[in-house]
Design a protein around this nucleic acid. Structure first.
Length: 595
RNA sequence: GCUGAUGUAGCUCAGGCGGUAGAGCACCUCCUUGGUAAGGAGGAGGUCAUGGGUUCGAGUCCCAUCAUCAGCUCCA
């Protein structure tokens, strides 16, 4: 096994080298066609490569075509790459001479005394650590995909450069396979498929980031919510229902007024607030609301852990360019929960949260696509966070120890924490490979004190509980989006908005079809009746069946026997059966969901 | 928010140089027919995203706004 993995890694490394070389070919081509272009950076990425340029006008799609042709010529000439090294000062001088200010800046940021490597390909020279293919001809297949703006050094304070994305492979076939894969991804894209399947829609009148769940989408979300609430109840959670808005006072205590004002929908403004007028804001999270539930009466150490959950709708004023389908929206509903624990309970409760999240992912079939991120604070950016450095550091160590003891394979990242504590984020990739957080579990040693939440310990002392913030499947809209893409719209039977489609061949069967519908519906099966009486056969029906687990066809011959022809998405033709038999089978199938 | 592209019937799209809108599929009615994306006849549906402007006249040109898409930045 180790050997195979090693080989795969080596292959990936070679592909990255090839793509990095392709980015140099791109830069050379751009320099030839647009001599005024200034070079920034051009790395290989997982799916290909890009290069950033500072140019007067953005690249058009025609520009890309011409650049790609020029790249083909360089590859055909099999231009050789030669490495050479310069001391720092000479390197800066060379880049000044070539009028490449971004390269100069890059070199100046590198440590003193370091030798700097360059690669020369024909008359084109680029600062680069390498490695590279020996010649451009090794790039067998290359394709430019798109141009887009990107900030220099990834900061919106800097100038926006023009980035060209492309991909490269060592064979024509591999490139074609990748392009096919991109088309397949587009087909599964929840934003397209979800609209086609009438799961959701949007309205220009309602606004950006505010999708409407249509009956089928609303049904799936309802099923998910019932499932989550039932499961959490079994695990000792207590459901709350708290208001969707609160006075600014609440958010001042929580710290959101200072740390999250831009992200909130405030019904009024800071000036009104300063004048002492009542200013309400829609809630961007549930924490302080559930804290008020905790504060309803005095708490004993015997009451802990106290686990609150809520199917909670939140509002966040995302900036206009961020919104995307059901993945990034301005209003969403989340399976939110807060656990108040004694210090000696935190570890077990944290584990319980992780296990619950994993159980949810297993049930939905998403676990294999999840990755874990340990999101830490950024000690160099103190104004983003509340509390003392010691609390942060000790909380992070504490969390890390739990993660390690659970054997969770995570990546640690600085600057990704919530403003009040570190997080374990469970990340999911969408069909295009873009990553988003689905589930988050956080440890918070700070807010209980801010809100004056206490319990009386066995020694009679008032103490602050430790708060765990957590979601179990995260936001329902986002989960729905991931499920659409995971199953290409063909939901598992227990989640399918339509479990059975009842069809007829002639209107003489319509009454009998309605009886079958009533029978199934009475048993809690989600039925869609289609009385169009189309004269089409099973093979054709399969096309529309793709998204529906079961299909029943009612016809005259079957009417005589009081039977229906049944077909399953999974098992194919089930033959002609008594409706009761079909019902039994269906119920069994629906109950196969993990419990 | 930034860069770019896009916005014509439910869907996919046509509409060279400005002269007040079309196709396929879907939908509705009727006929034919119990079944392999069936045939025939007819029908409905668009203030061309919205608001301004230029013009005798704008889907077509200009500006603004809104929305959608890709990427960046930010985040669940």
């Amino acid at each position: 096994m180790g050997e195979i993995r090693k080989e795969v890694q080596q292959e990936n490394q070679e592909l990255r080298t090839l793509r990095h070389t392709a980015s140099h070919v791109l830069a050379q081509a751009v320099k030839k066609l647009f001599p005024a272009a200034k070079l920034a950076i051009g790395p290989a990425i997982d799916t290909g490569f890009y290069y950033d340029f500072d140019v007067d006008a953005p690249f058009t799609s025609q520009d890309l075509q011409e650049i790609e042709k020029e790249m083909q010529r360089i590859i055909k000439r099999n231009a050789k790459l030669e490495r050479f090294v310069l001391p720092r000062e000479e390197a800066i001088a060379l880049m000044r001479e070539k009028n490449e200010p971004y390269k100069v800046e890059l070199i100046e940021d590198l440590p003193e005394g370091e030798e700097l490597s360059f690669y020369k390909m024909e008359d084109f020279v680029d600062l680069c650590a390498g490695p590279h293919m020996p010649s451009a001809g090794k790039v067998k297949a290359v394709k430019l995909l798109q141009a887009a703006g990107a900030y220099w050094r990834g900061s919106e304070k800097n100038k926006m450069l023009q980035r060209i994305y492309g991909t490269a492979f060592d064979s024509r076939e591999a490139l074609e396979a990748y392009v096919t894969q991109l088309e397949e991804a587009k087909r599964r894209d929840h934003n397209k498929l979800g609209r086609e399947l009438e799961l959701f829609t949007t309205s220009d009148l309602i606004g950006q980031g505010l999708p409407i769940l249509l009956p089928k989408g609303a049904r799936v979300v309802q099923l998910l919510q019932r499932f989550v609430e039932d499961e959490e109840e079994q695990r000792g959670y207590l459901l709350t229902k708290s208001p969707l808005m609160a006075k600014s006072d609440l958010f001042k205590v929580s710290g959101h007024w200072d740390h999250y004002y831009e992200g909130m929908f405030v019904l009024g403004d800071k000036e009104m607030d300063a004048r002492g007028e009542e200013v309400l804001a829609l809630r961007p999270m549930t924490c302080p609301f559930q804290f008020q539930a905790y504060l309803n009466r005095t708490r004993s150490y015997r009451d802990l852990p106290l686990r609150y959950n809520e199917t909670s709708t939140l509002f966040r004023n995302e900036s206009s360019g961020e919104m995307h389908g059901l993945i990034r929206v301005r209003q969403f509903t989340i399976s939110e929960g807060h656990l108040a624990c004694r210090p000696d309970q935190v570890e077990a409760e944290f584990r319980g949260c992780v296990e619950l999240a994993q159980f949810m992912l297993d049930t939905l079939g998403l676990r294999e696509d999840a990755s874990y991120r340990f999101s830490k604070w950024d000690p160099n950016n103190r104004e983003k966070y509340i509390g003392d450095a010691e609390v942060w550091e000790s909380t992070q160590v504490f969390m890390q120890e739990i993660l390690d003891s659970m054997g969770i394979d995570y990546t640690a990242e600085d600057g990704e924490a919530a403003f009040y504590g570190p997080k374990l984020d469970i990340q999911m990739r969408n069909v295009h490979g873009k990553e988003d957080t689905l589930i988050t579990i956080q440890i918070d040693f700070q807010l209980a004190e801010r809100f004056g939440m206490t319990y009386t310990d066995s020694d009679g002392q008032k103490k602050h509980p430790v708060i765990l913030h957590r979601t179990s499947i995260g936001c329902y809209e986002r989960t729905l989006a991931l499920l659409i893409e995971k199953y290409a719209g063909a939901f598992p039977t227990w989640l399918a908005p339509t479990q059975v489609k009842v069809l007829t061949i002639t209107e003489r069967c319509d009454d009998w079809a309605r009886e079958v519908e009533t029978l199934l519906r009475a048993s809690g099966i989600r039925v869609e009746l289609d009385l169009r009486n189309e004269k089409i056969g099973f093979k054709i029906r399969e096309a529309q069946m793709e998204k529906v687990p079961y299909m029943l066809v009612v016809g005259d011959k079957e009417v005589e026997d009081r039977t229906v022809a049944a077909r399953s998405r999974k098992d194919g033709d089930l033959g002609v059966q008594e409706p009761q038999d079909v019902l039994t089978r269906l119920l069994a199938e629906i109950r196969t969901r993990v419990r």
